[in-house]
Design a protein around this nucleic acid. Sequence first.
DNA 1: AATGGGTCCTGTAAGC
DNA 2: TGCTTACAGGACCCAT
Length: 283
Amino acid sequence: MPELPEVETVRRGLLPVMEGQVIARAQVNRPDLRWPFPPGMADRLTGARVNTLRRRSKYILADLSTGETLLIHLGMSGRMLISGTQVGGFHHDHPAPAKHDHVVLDMDGGARVTFNDARRFGAMDLLPTAGAEAHPLLSVLGPEPLGNDFHEHYLASRLKGRATPVKSALLDQHLVAGLGNIYVCEVLFRAGIHPARFARDISPAEAARLVPLIREVLAEAIEAGGSSLKDYRQADGELGYFQHSFRVYDREGQPCTTPGCTAHLHRIVQSGRSSFFCPVCQK
DNA sequence: AATGGGTCCTGTAAGC
DNA sequence: TGCTTACAGGACCCAT
C-alpha cells in the first residue's frame, strides 16, 4: 500500500504520540517479518526515548536515546494503529489484539502503537544512528523526489540510455526513492507520457516536465493525507489511509478525465505490475 | 551494470 | 454457497 505520501502521513500521525516519549514496553509477537528482527529487539527498544521520527523514502526512522535507530518499512500491507490516546479528537481504547499484530509499542505518554502486517513484506531493523545512511537498505536509494538533489538534469541523465520502460525506471528506487505503482501511473498521465516508452527515448524536455509533476503529485497526496489526520476517517486510529482521487490508477475502462478526451483508460502489465493510462493523452 | 522474472505472504474479489 | 484464480500500493535475489 504505502508509497512515499502514505509513509509520510503515517510518520506525521505518529509524531504526537511517539516523538520525545519513552517506549515503556515493546512487545514482539513473532521472530520475523520479511527478515528476522534484530536480536533482542524488544529489550533494545524498551526504555528508549524516541528523539526524532524522520522519513527516508518509504522508510520511517526513529532515532532513539540509546544511539540506535529503529527502521520501519510497511511493505505492501503494513499498517500503524494508534490507541489509548486522543487522535484527531477521538479517544481510542486499546482494541483486542488482532491477527497480524506483530509489534506493539506502549509509550509512556499512554499511547499504544501497533504494527499490523498481513503479508509480512514489511521490515524492522535496528542500526547505529551514527552512519545510519550506510545501512544496506538506505545506502542504495536514489534522491528524495521532493529534495534538492532531484532535478531535471539528474533525471534526464539517469533515464539516458536505459532500455527499460519509463514506468519501470521511475519505480526503480535506485533512480528516485519513494515512488510506487500508483503515483508513477498518475505522474505519467499528467505528463502525457506513455508508460511503455523506453526511458532512453524520453527527451530532456520531457524529463524536465516530469520533475515538477512528480513533486506535484506527491505533494498533493501528502496534503490530502495531512487533512485526513484530523478527519473522521481516522476515527479508528489507523494511519496512512485516506481518500485518494486517482485520475488513472485502478480506473481501467473508465473514461479519461481530460476535458474533451473521449477515450477510455487502458491497463497493461509491465514487470508484473499494472499500468493504467489513457491511450490518447499519453504518447 | 542493467534488465527481467520469480518470489516472499495473506486477504479480497471476481469468476464459475 | 463454495471453490479456484487473479491480483494487490514492495523490493530483494538471481540468472542472463
